[in-house]
Amino acid sequence: MKSLSLKNLAKTYFDAYKGEHVTAIRDVSLEVPAGEFVSIVGPSGCGKSTILNMVAGFIPHSGGDILVGGVPVKGPGPDRGVVFQSFALFPWKTVLDNVGFGPKMRGVPKARRDEIAREYLALAGLSHAADRYPNELSGGMQQRVGVVRALANEPDVLLMDEPFASVDAQTRMTLQDELSRIWEERRPTVVFITHDVPEAVFLANRVVVLSKGKVLAEVEVPISRPRVWDRLVADDEFKDLSNQVLALVRSA
């Protein structure tokens, strides 16, 4: 587990259609200490996914620094695990082999990486699905595999890009409960992108509100853990914080 630090991060790109330079991220500085869960919320087009893609190394940044444990980011790497909105499971690999993919890339022998994969699948209650192919699973199950696959590679920082946006509301709450439980057990450093304010507050230690490529506000979430929806759904502190963040997002 390591810290993530963004210093004066900026992203401009050339929009060939408009024929002009566009500023997606103006100036974002953010400290995520090791073992903290930070949610980034903001309206569509505020640049939250751009930040995540730059931290993941999928797109280059135009200015500032991205440091993981003090080391500058150069391209994608296994120190930063990513969970995608579209799940991005390998359709030609079984669930077991999807989860074992990271260890395989590290050169872990087959027997050992199967063991690792089974251990992590058990963590999310997925042991029975080990030999299935992704297309045989529901969306919720697929994303459980997506989360487990990222965790099984033991990244320093876990990046989650609207991971629960494409599953139904019921499943989403279950997944949020599970992610909360897993985070409490393992304490990974997490950056979680979402436009769902209650989700952001429910999961995070701190919520960052982004607007027009800049940090508008940071809101601490001191709600005690373990957090489960059964308790928080009627919790006044949770409601107040959610309303506070929602007001910020709407003003953004």
């Binding site: 999928f58 994608p76 995608f84 499971l89 390998f90 993919f101």
Partner: peptide, 11 residues
């Protein structure tokens, strides 16, 4: 995203 996923898993 599949290529991104593989790269971020160390491929």
């Amino acid at each position: 995203t599949l290529r991104h996923a593989a790269a971020s898993l160390g491929a």
